[in-house]
Design a protein around this nucleic acid. Structure first.
Lengths: 166, 166
DNA sequence: TTAGAAATCACCCTAAAGTATGAGTACAGG
DNA sequence: CCTGTACTCATACTTTAGGGTGATTTCTAA
């Protein structure tokens, strides 16, 4: 579903990039012929090298890149001093994605919600996500509207009961 | 401590891409000028081209193949040996009274904490308990001091992890 | 190509939360 | 009786949260 669209998108962009690269090389060649009197065949050779290694880079990246992932929150529990007791396996939380769609909650809004639930302030959330405080406010405001709550504590409580956060 | 990680962001690529291309062009020309004077730099030149375009390919692929959905891993700190039973989530909630004594949390403070966790504002808590808003503030302040937190959301999160509230 | 969603950021303003300090009342235990 | 604790309330102040508006950019889908 989502993958084919990305493949199409990728191919399109790659083609675009290829054309751009060709134009670029042509420009370089032209400039060199005009001003540097470089051997023409050498430039084609260099261009070939460039194209080949660009393709190699793309192939490498696609081969090694992390696969496409869902928005899943994995709750890893870290225990302190507990001598004998076998630990409760409350580890896995499965996100209720239907409700996310129902409330039209976006990825970023969910992230903000999750960080809210850990007790972070808006400023701290902004720092963690490398975005500005104002953006966090925007996200939280729209989140509260979508969830039909008035406060962050209410949003957290409701989200827990709905299975939106652990 | 909660450590969200692996937050990748690929924004503002257009400008970056333009600058990169410009820099690349300049670099190519510079290298070729060098090549005019240093015959033996040919290998270095080719190698540089290969490396640069490989990196470009990797960057390009990563940019185009960036997953829209991301994974958040939250490490949850569990502080003390949860009394007797491996808890079946929210089914049975047993108040951890030892922790109440340990933190010296009073009855009224616990009530305020519990109401906080349901998303009520201080004013609403005051109304619910038939006492003044100032008193709620006093309770919450001392509660935060005792729990060593700075915000109500943090108190709620910590209290849940400690088994002080459901 | 265009419309819409998503994400980003800014500015202004109000409301709520939180801090600090002081103080009065009630009650249990030494 | 006295002391400590819990509970109550107040005033003044600072910080954070939240609402409203507008704007830009990127990407997707029609």
């Amino acid at each position: 579903m989502a993958v084919p669209s990305h493949i199409r998108s990728f191919g399109k962009h790659t083609l675009l990039y290829g054309v751009s690269l060709a134009a670029l090389l042509f420009l370089i060649n032209w400039l060199q012929i005009r001003y540097l009197f470089i051997d023409h065949a050498m430039d084609i050779y260099i261009g070939g090298i460039a194209i080949i290694f660009t393709a190699l880079g793309i192939w490498l990246a696609l081969k090694l890149a992390t696969p496409r992932k869902e928005t899943i929150i994995v709750e890893k529990e870290v225990y302190l001093p507990t001598p004998p007791a076998p630990l409760p396996a409350n580890a896995h939380f499965v996100l209720n994605e239907k409700l996310l769609e129902k409330f039209r909650i976006s990825t970023r809004e969910l992230q903000v919600l999750q960080l809210m639930a850990t007790g972070l302030s808006n400023q701290e959330i902004a720092t963690h996500l490398f975005i500005s405080l104002n953006t966090i406010k925007t996200h939280s405001s729209s989140l509260f509207m979508k969830m039909e709550v008035k406060r962050r504590t209410q949003a957290i409580d409701k989200a827990r009961k709905l299975g939106l956060i652990p």
